[in-house]
């Protein structure tokens, strides 16, 4: 099949390499602009795992914004994290990007593997500790950019709905609320599917290993992801539709959450 826009062979989404890259970058630029993710004068740190999503975010913010810093966290996951951190170091050296690597062992005294010996739900513990360290080491920056993509976000929305955790739902979205204690988070890849990001990283020769965290394989998220992917194979717009529906109701969810919190406060105070 030929590219929709030129006589070259199509490689992805009926576009040639050149036009797919242009299309993808425009989508990210449009997201940054529409949701006011990053002002020209603001400083930004990119939370990096060394995987395709964070390296794509790092590359594009460097391209669009100029000065960026990479911040990586070594949780201490045997046989996984050292490979992705090596990819990150090589990438940053190639693209002349400053990077900092911090670790669970240095900050919490133990690796994740040691913390989770004989315990369940490593993803919940890991996520909470990672957020804590990101916020700690991003102090002084205006924004933290993460590589969350459309698949991650649609899964997170469904997970909250399926677990009846609607008070938490309004915290999702392309940009977190401004809070004094926390550096604001932005998601430039919000409307890019996981497959699109993978195609972009491959076509740009980022040299990433497309590996899945060994702890994530049996997680609740993985179950939701697999079910959603089965449905999405026949209904191609479903992930985008989940995000659009969520963004349409987000203001109401926020109001409701404030109301619930006020009621809880009155109950506790009473």
């Amino acid at each position: 099949m030929k590219c929709k826009q030129c006589p070259q062979n199509a490689v992805f989404q009926d576009l040639c390499k050149h036009h797919f890259i242009l299309d993808f970058e425009k989508k990210v630029k449009d997201t940054i602009k529409k949701y006011k993710l990053l002002d020209k004068k603001e400083s930004v740190v990119v939370a990096c795992s060394g995987g395709k999503d964070s390296l794509t975010t790092l590359y594009l913010l460097k391209k669009f914004h100029g000065n960026v810093t990479a911040l990586a966290i070594d949780e201490g996951i045997h046989g996984y994290r050292s490979k992705t951190l090596e990819d990150l170091k090589q990438f940053c050296e190639k693209h002349k990007i400053t990077y900092k690597i911090v670790s669970f062992k240095e900050d919490f005294g133990k690796t994740l593997d040691v913390m989770m010996t004989d315990k369940k739900n490593p993803c919940t513990v890991c996520g909470t500790l990672r957020r804590n360290l990101l916020n700690k080491y991003a102090q002084g920056y205006d924004k933290i950019a993460t590589g969350h993509n459309m698949d991650d976000e649609s899964q997170a929305i469904l997970m909250n709905l399926l677990k009846n955790q609607t008070p938490l739902l309004h915290t999702l979205g392309p940009k977190s609320d401004k809070k004094s204690m926390f550096v604001q988070r932005i998601k430039p890849l919000y409307f890019c599917s996981e497959k699109e990001v993978a195609a972009y990283a491959l076509l740009q020769n980022f040299g990433v290993h497309f590996a899945e965290c060994p702890n994530a394989k049996d997680s609740y998220r993985a179950k939701v992801r697999d079910a959603l992917n089965v449905y999405a194979s026949e209904h191609h717009d479903v992930k985008r539709n989940i995000l659009e529906s969520f963004l349409a109701i987000k203001p109401h969810l926020k109001k409701q959450s404030l109301h619930v919190n006020q009621e809880k406060f009155i109950e506790l105070a009473g």
């Binding site: 992805f12 795992s49 395709k52 996951i77 996981e194 497959k195 899945e212 994530a216």
Partner: peptide, 21 residues
């Protein structure tokens, strides 16, 4: 893309897009 014809002489790689945790 999915419409691409494959022959017996081709070398094909299937790259998983699921990564991270």
């Amino acid at each position: 893309q999915e419409d691409e014809a494959l022959q017996n002489t081709d070398v094909v790689k299937l790259i998983s897009v699921i990564s991270g945790g």
